[in-house]
Design a protein around this nucleic acid. Structure first.
Lengths: 180, 180
DNA sequence: GTGAGCATGTAAGATGTTACATGATTTT
DNA sequence: AAAATCATGTAACATCTTACATGCTCAC
């Protein structure tokens, strides 16, 4: 996963490992975490496989810029065309057992999580506004359809989870929330 | 994750590795996959840490029954009480780059996935009916609140994703679907 | 007796996390 | 000159996937 995301980001422009991490954190930190301990080894592997090339910068001694090579682009596009896998969901794996958790801790954990969800939704709302504005000034907004869509859908999904958590906190009658 | 799910399932009743796999696949196969290559090593580790005990069955030579030990229960409850982590989502990580995928493959992948989602939703609907019936005949249905809720929410989440995929397939105007 | 399903396991390799370790550059 | 942030990397350990390998048991 991470290797291919890196290739996908390098498709846009050459970047350093540090830049890649920042882009991941800000662009889709809400659904993918990249630690340096996974990022740098991934870049190393990609370099060894000649999917990317490295350039040391003249001005800064420490910095390396990675550029996507043709074989890397090919690999990325092959991955992209693979069938979609149903994603796993660790959240549900935990809540499944919440009948075994004491009332007080349960209440606390759900409240904490609810707060974080609200923060995240708020943050994404801001991103959404910025992106919408930027998009309006571009000549070809249709080229960014899917990434904007992922953002919008991310907000929907988080909102659905938020409403669910609110419901189960109050132990409301079980029902499938409106999906229509 | 898997180790703790195993402990949680053994809380109900002693089981064999094979039974555990079947339970995981049927109970929450839609958000957690457990292969034998991860399951048996996990059971081995749990045994080494004395979280579970093993009993060979008399009648069947090959079968081993795992039973939860007190330290295993304690470990499980400690895990359960930990703060909830925001789950990652590999689906979004792929669709994010879908602007780079050719129209034909895109259409095909989205259609395939839509079909699988519909199957899964249908399957969960059946499970839901069975569970609802069983629940009605139990003396204390409230003890199963969260696991039933996970099932209902799973259906909602899959339905939301399904509607999203339907929308992006047709490249409908971007908007946040009704969440209220 | 044979095939479906029950049942357990290992090996190689991929990939991830956390903690540690270091130093450069820019801002205050 | 100190602090914040930029910048890269390793080591130990944990865990998962896929493929391989084997044998039992029950129903027909």
């Amino acid at each position: 996963m991470l290797e291919n995301v890196i290739l996908g980001l390098l498709l846009e422009q050459p970047m350093s490992g540090y830049d890649i991490k920042k882009t991941i954190d800000s662009s889709f930190g809400f659904f993918l975490k990249a630690s340096y301990g996974s990022l740098y080894p991934a870049l190393k592997r990609l370099t060894e496989k000649s999917y990317v090339s490295v350039m040391e910068t003249e001005n800064s001694k420490n910095k390396k810029i990675y550029t996507l090579l043709p074989s890397g682009k090919e690999t990325f596009l092959t991955w992209l065309a693979e069938p979609i896998e149903t994603p796993r969901n660790e959240l549900l794996g935990r809540i499944f057992f919440y009948d075994h958790l004491d009332e007080a801790t349960r209440e606390q954990r759900l409240s904490e999580y609810l707060y974080r969800l609200e923060q995240e939704i708020k943050g994404l709302g801001t991103v959404q506004q910025i992106v919408s504005q930027e998009l309006a000034s571009l000549p070809n907004p249709g080229d960014y359809y899917y990434r904007v869509s992922v953002l919008f859908n991310g907000i929907s999904q988080l909102t659905l989870v938020k409403e669910w958590i609110q419901n189960i906190k109050e132990r409301n009658d079980l029902h499938v929330p409106n999906s229509k």
